[in-house]
């Protein structure tokens, strides 16, 4: 007797998601831009574009270039700032009954704390995702995610200040992901998400110059999926807090690969650019897989990977 209805909800411990599919920060705007294509409440959650305290301009163009099965970007985290988000965007996301996860940025540890305190005052946010891949102006532009001490320092400070749970988003550009993951866990992070983009370079051979104005950019899209999956698997083994996996997910099968290695949820990024309904399609495809394989709860599939 085949399963008719699959329970797609997943428990992060501090929050139960209606399904494991979230949007990845920076690939879904602030959510409302995608309302012509996606009923936001059908998603596990909407992770907003990264927010600093003040509005930001971002990098000069070219900011994005397509590469084989992926894209390289150096957008530079432009945005409207946290106050405009709370005033203009959040009420509309609440109206849509979206599960809102705010991605928090900072040029300094103080700024992260300031953004989180500001958001704490607002209603209608489920939890925060901490973007620790922002260049830190006090550390010569190095981002906290590359170093366990810096990771510990920013996560512990924000965790002490924040009234909501925190997911720390990790960078893949490190030699030992377990070391950074444990530092974030010890600092009190409630969960981890990974991976952010892989640092890359693309050259225009006609001009012998970089294709991006910023020279280097972050690689995302299907090209990075196996790289991301390896890091997610190793992170799951290294920590006891929930892990959210992302990196190149385009189909339900891709998402299931991440869940199988122990991710409790996934984020969809680059796929939104070419398929604005990718998130909904992926939920459907995962559900279909479960029905076909007699899995009544998606949680039963999580961590089912065996070597």
């Amino acid at each position: 007797m085949a399963v008719q209805k699959v329970d797609m909800s997943v428990d992060l411990g501090f929050f139960r998601l209606t399904n494991p599919v979230l949007t990845a920060s920076g690939t879904f705007g602030y959510g409302i831009e995608m309302m012509p294509f996606v009923e936001l409440k059908k998603l596990g959650g909407v992770v907003t574009k990264g927010l600093y305290f003040e509005p930001r301009e971002g990098n000069p163009p070219p900011r994005l270039v397509e590469v084989t099965a992926g894209l390289l970007n150096a957008i530079g985290l432009p945005g409207i700032g946290v106050k405009a988000f709370i005033r203009d965007i959040l009420p509309r996301l609440r109206e849509e009954k979206a599960t809102v996860i705010v991605n928090v940025c900072g040029e300094t540890v103080e700024e992260y704390v300031k953004v989180v305190r500001c958001l704490d005052e607002a209603e209608g946010i489920a939890f925060y995702e901490l973007n620790i891949s922002c260049p830190n102006v006090e550390e010569e532009g190095r981002c906290p995610a590359l170093n366990p001490q810096a990771t510990y320092s920013v996560v512990s400070r924000v965790k002490k200040a924040a009234q909501r749970p925190i997911v720390t988003k990790l960078s893949p550009n490190v030699t030992d992901i377990a070391l950074i993951a444990r530092a974030a866990e010890e600092a009190g992070s409630d969960a981890l998400s990974l991976v952010n983009t892989f640092l890359g370079l693309a050259v225009n051979v006609e001009t012998r110059r970089p294709k991006l104005a910023n020279v280097y950019g972050g690689l995302s899209g299907p090209a990075i999926k196996p790289l991301a999956l390896r890091l997610v698997y190793q992170t799951v083994q290294a920590v006891n807090i929930p892990v959210i996996g992302l990196g190149g997910i385009v189909t339900g099968y891709d998402a299931l690969e991440f869940l199988s290695v122990g991710a409790r949820a996934v984020q969809i990024g680059t796929a939104n650019f070419f398929d604005p309904q990718a998130t909904l399609r992926i939920i459907q495809e995962m559900e279909e897989f479960c029905r076909e394989h007699n899995i009544s709860r998606i949680e039963d599939f999580i961590g089912s990977f065996r070597i």
Binding site: G26, T27, F28, G29, E33, M34, K49, E57, G58, P60, P61, P62, R63, L64, V65, L71, N73, I75, P78, N272, F273, F274, P276
Partner: peptide
């Protein structure tokens, strides 16, 4: 004409300098 990632306003890549309220913005 510019390089566009998504066309939907979510990737922030297709910017140019445009004058808004007397200053150049992306």
């Amino acid at each position: 004409e510019t390089y566009m990632g998504c066309g939907l306003g979510i990737c922030w890549s297709c910017v140019r300098r445009i004058k808004k309220a007397n200053s150049w913005s992306w």
